[in-house]
Design a protein around this nucleic acid. Sequence first.
DNA 1: ATGGGTGCAAATGCTTTGCAAGTAC
DNA 2: GTACTTGCAAAGCATTTGCACCCAT
Lengths: 141, 141
Amino acid sequence: MESAQEIFQSFLRTKRLKYTPERRAILENIQQFRRPFEAEELLLQLRQSDHRASKATVYRTLKHLVESGLLNQMFFGAGKQSYYDFAGSSRGHDHLVDIESGLIVPFESPEVSDLCGRLADRLGYSNVSHRFVIIGRRKSP
Amino acid sequence: MESAQEIFQSFLRTKRLKYTPERRAILENIQQFRRPFEAEELLLQLRQSDHRASKATVYRTLKHLVESGLLNQMFFGAGKQSYYDFAGSSRGHDHLVDIESGLIVPFESPEVSDLCGRLADRLGYSNVSHRFVIIGRRKSP
DNA sequence: ATGGGTGCAAATGCTTTGCAAGTAC
DNA sequence: GTACTTGCAAAGCATTTGCACCCAT
């Protein structure tokens, strides 16, 4: 199994792009998030870990990471910002958002893909991908 | 069955807001869209139908219409803008987006709500609502 | 050496807001 | 009469881009 670093480096080589210290720092940092994160959070964490990369570089690198398949990019509700999740986390590509705390819970369910296929078919389309977000309220125990 | 106009007027009264010519023009225009639309499209259509309302008023009124339940507000992929769909259209609250043309096809399926309930439950939540978008490619006939 | 990379600040694009003047109730 | 409204332009926000200098390869 290839490490994220190897995957990213080979992605960059393919595109004749460079593996700079900034890109390495960003790659290391995103692997530490235990949940989907925003660009701004990554920027903060970088500054705290005395690595450095400007806002512009963070956005440019996130774009490459998404293209390389290492990150999933997600959009929620009315929030204007993107969320990113490390693909290697295998937490799932669908999400439940806690209506009270805003917590994002990734999950995976084969039933969703199945349903997508059937529904797309019914409408005369083939299923390419989907976006699925459940807004839920935590059950009191 | 109450008309959209009656619903909006009574919503406004409840909130001690006013039923102005601009708000009436906007309400009339949104009922003519046969598909989800953007704020900018509404603005254009208003200008063509020689009604008038500024961009600011359009956004302010759309917000009230969503709050009143007459419009559904939706967000897709990376696009920064909101889409709105007249709730009375009964076209459904889930959507398929044609990956090539960008066409948005609303649909409704009880299987989706069922699945939401089951999945939320499985994660320890109760289902409040959901957002479901299928990205599809039109099948050649 | 050289083509891509970086930081900065300015530019975007959609949406919101402050303000002075207008109007529905 | 008096809140609420409107249009305009300016402000907001997340993200992107132009540019002059920098550095992996």
